[in-house]
Design a binder for these strands. Structure first.
Ligand SMILES: [Zn+2]
Ligand SMILES: [Zn+2]
Ligand SMILES: [Zn+2]
Ligand SMILES: [Zn+2]
Lengths: 134, 134
DNA sequence: TTATAAAATGTTATATTATAACAAACGTTA
DNA sequence: TAACGTTTGTTATAATATAACATTTTATAA
């Protein structure tokens, strides 16, 4: 199994494939269940792949849901500036691509003397579909 | 034990007292350990108090840390617009009070037709202290 | 006051999420 | 080849959070 610098390992690729074809964020143990037929047997194998995929920006963790979603933003390879919209009703999650927002937040600083290198923003509300139904 | 509308119950008050006098965010089981002398014995008693305190805006959950911090912002009683700065080194956490930021984010909307009712923003970096030491 | 509904409590058990520790195999580079 | 870092496999366990049910307390109002 050849593996160049920028390539993913076997387990990493298996986990990424699953997350990329999913319609929404997946939980770690749901991933585990779904990749057992591929030979991944233990939680750690999943968590290690997730850790790497997050590090290289292929996926993100939705912190409020303990779930993992494929990156939808070619610009955030470093994964240090993420924003999501999350529907409170159907749990639909979407990564927000908005240059103005990311510029605003990347340049933001408070009065504490702290330099921010990374941020994660989660918006909650009702998606268009769920709004109509109510 | 009398209890008016806006007052907290016994367990809620015990948990809130602990969180308010803490220097930083506390984890649920650390809270449990520290309130056992007050008669709170089980995780669920802590989690139920936390749930209520979050709901009324007295505390917030730091999602990336699974920890709970007292609200530092008299204006966010409803707890629907929160922002924090988190030091990657010493884990110091501070709630950001910034009218411009909260106005910007409260008015933000993307092109999905979704109306945001709530957001949570976490900034990461090195605090002033930790920056000096490196 | 008495009925009643809502909120909070107490308790046991269990579900869910995540990491520790260690040995072995693989990939890259010299 | 040797050396090094990364990835893997495996077992066990830690840490975080909720389900289910019985009971008690509080608020509201008939
Ligand atoms: Zn992304
Ligand atoms: Zn929805
Ligand atoms: Zn607050
Ligand atoms: Zn620091």
């Amino acid at each position: 199994m050849s593996q160049k610098l920028e390539q993913l390992s076997k387990n990493q690729q298996i986990v990424l494939n699953l997350i990329e074809k999913a319609k929404g964020p997946l939980k770690a143990y749901s991933i585990l269940y779904n990749v057992q037929k591929k030979g991944i047997k233990a939680p750690l194998q999943v968590y290690r792949a997730l850790e790497k995929l997050i590090k290289i920006g292929k996926i993100h963790k939705i912190e409020s849901k303990n779930a993992f979603i494929a990156c939808n933003n070619s610009e955030c390879e470093i994964s240090n500036a993420t924003a999501f919209s999350i529907c409170d009703n159907c749990e639909h999650v979407k990564e927000i691509k908005n240059a103005k927002l990311s510029k605003y937040l990347s340049n933001f600083h408070d009065n504490s003397g702290m330099k921010f290198k990374k941020y994660n923003l989660e918006f909650f509300g009702l998606c268009k579909n769920c709004k109509l139904k109510q």
